[in-house]
Design a protein around this nucleic acid. Structure first.
Lengths: 130, 130
DNA sequence: CTTTGTGCAAAGGCTTTGCATGCTT
DNA sequence: AAGCATGCAAAGCCTTTGCACAAAG
């Protein structure tokens, strides 16, 4: 949680690499398990701390599902919107230039910021709806 | 969590009345405190259970703030979108028929449902941004 | 060598559940 | 009278923190 004085460790490298290979949002727990399956034993605490660092540094996005669990994913460089399932965290990227502009205008009018890169639209995906 | 076999109790009446008088999203804890200030002593457990019932029944909206706490508010009858601060839960209702249509289309294309009445756009409000 | 990172165990915060009692219907 | 509702205490979950040891720079 300090400046840009972060050290490169086996654990961090493994987690970042894993995130780079994954598409959607995953919980710390899940990421921890995946690391274990790869033979990369990383403490759950470290997973949490590293994810927190990444989020703070703007290198990862975090969001909360309805039951309170947090899910993370590497922040992609391109700007886009997410259609996120509030139940399982499944996310779909959607384009919508016109909407982006509209959202920006509305947010600005209400003094809201920090929505330029990630606008989340929540719903329930087909699988969870059953 | 059962059918429409809910009974009218002092506690439920007090909570629903309180929610009706409140604008934005509040945490269970906060609602519990507000009830106490009114002399309406309701167990925190009951507040949680009642809120859950209301959400399930579609009579209230719930969302999670970044730190994991859930906040609730009475669902208004009109259809609208929310611009919600992911830090404090402050919400602003915004209109946007064109966007509503767009969101509906996008969601449908991806098999997402249950977004017709509440589309949440997250950002950080002016007060929290400081 | 100094400083940051790691990991275990324990603590924290919010939410849910078990169970006996109370109240609505 | 019968069956939810309530509330207290305890358990559950996810997440964070304390502390000693290990590793990076």
């Amino acid at each position: 949680m300090n400046r840009a004085d972060r050290r490169i460790t086996r654990q961090r490298t493994a987690l970042v690499r894993l995130l780079d290979e994954i598409e959607g949002f995953r919980s710390a727990r899940h990421l921890h398990e995946l690391l274990g399956e790869r033979g990369e034993d990383v403490g759950l605490t470290t997973v949490y701390r590293t994810l927190q660092t990444l989020v703070t540094a703007g290198q990862a996005d975090m969001l909360r599902l309805d039951h309170g669990e947090a899910v993370y994913r590497r922040r992609s460089s391109r700007r886009h919107h997410h259609l996120v399932c509030r139940s399982c965290g499944h996310a779909v990227e959607v384009a919508g230039p016109a909407v982006a502009a509209w959202v920006r205008r509305i947010a600005g009018e209400h003094g809201f910021s920090d929505i330029a890169y990630t606008v989340e639209i929540f719903g329930v995906c087909g699988r969870c709806a059953r």
